[in-house]
Design a protein around this nucleic acid. Structure first.
Lengths: 182, 182
DNA sequence: CTTCGTTATGTACGCTTGTACACATGGGAT
DNA sequence: ATCCCATGTGTACAAGCGTACATAACGAAG
């Protein structure tokens, strides 16, 4: 069952696809562009991913896991005694403050689920993961609202170009959390 | 300066473009598809809109104005004595409860601004219009937060397929509004 | 009536795309 | 050693794309 020639071929194609989306946008992703970026022949991408949707699902899943790991590694949400709103605002700040192409990439894949049902379960997973993580610190309804508000804040920053304001985020996120539950 | 033959040609192309996006998604919009839908020759769309971005801007602006008018006509946000959170939750419910393709269309155009700078001012206008309308009933910070949260809630509904819960929306929207300001 | 510029139209070019398919290759099973 | 099949490769095709451009129609201005 061992792979013959290039055991990491599939993974390299996914990595290349993510780079392509980051550089040229989702519209720039094709079997050919991914193949070129991964330095493999066209037939290789069509063999491993029969449709573009398949490739997008793999890319979104990987990006999603990357974000989840980043959140987990951050630790700002783990301190049971800390300010939950402040922690979440900090996480968003670090995420939005870093390399913007990464954020755009992940949001673009995330939002692509609007029109591509195949991506929807992965997008839902992403939101659920964050909500579940927040549920350790507050109730499920509040957790879901925090995810929604965080999504909306990120969207405003990305769509309007207004710089991220961590103080504002902390303030309004805090309002969503019932007294004594954050 | 009067138009010669078909004075509403340009407008018909915009309407057709909106229908195309509604049916086939933004990726399905092209000079040709819009021309076919509007029943005009290809050259006509390229004449009135030199680039696809121009056509998208016109379509997004029109969709945005349509939404703004719907909100204005709804009236649930106008009653100075009413519950602001409940009114906003009701508006979202009516919007999401109606023809889903219209909602998807407007969100798709809205989110396309993520990668198309040309659309960004229009997207920002849209959000600002709603925020301004809310500012008549509360302070600007709260208004912006309400828009963000509403965006996030709509996103969750559209991306995960979870049905819209007006009671939940009203509850969490209410939390964002400081006591005595809604 | 003639002239002129805007509007409208049809066609053609070069490019990219998804897809299909025939062929090579090489390791694991027999 | 031989066969088999998952894996890898190259090429070709039809369709759709943006764009350019030559030409036609037509109202207004002179």
């Amino acid at each position: 069952m061992a792979r013959r020639h290039d055991p990491e071929r599939r993974q390299r194609i996914i990595d290349a696809a993510i780079r392509v989306v980051g550089e040229k946008g989702l519209a720039g992703l094709s079997h050919r562009s991914a193949a070129a970026e991964a330095d493999v022949p066209l037939g290789s991408t069509t063999y491993h991913f029969k449709s573009l949707d398949e490739l997008m699902v793999a890319a979104l899943r990987q990006a999603s896991e990357g974000f989840a790991k980043a959140v987990a590694a951050h630790g700002a949400l783990d301190d049971p005694g800390g300010d939950l709103a402040a922690g979440l605002a900090r996480v968003l700040g670090d995420w939005l403050g870093g390399d913007r192409t990464g954020v755009e990439l992940e949001y673009e894949l995330y939002l692509a689920a609007l029109r591509r049902p195949a991506l929807r379960p992965v997008a839902a997973e992403w939101a659920d993961d964050l909500a579940e993580r927040l549920t350790r610190r507050t109730d499920p309804v509040t957790a879901r609202a925090l995810v929604a508000l965080a999504d909306g804040i990120c969207l405003q920053v990305l769509l309007t170009g207004v710089p991220y304001d961590e103080g504002y985020a902390r303030e309004v996120l805090g309002r969503v959390i019932p007294a004594g539950r954050g």
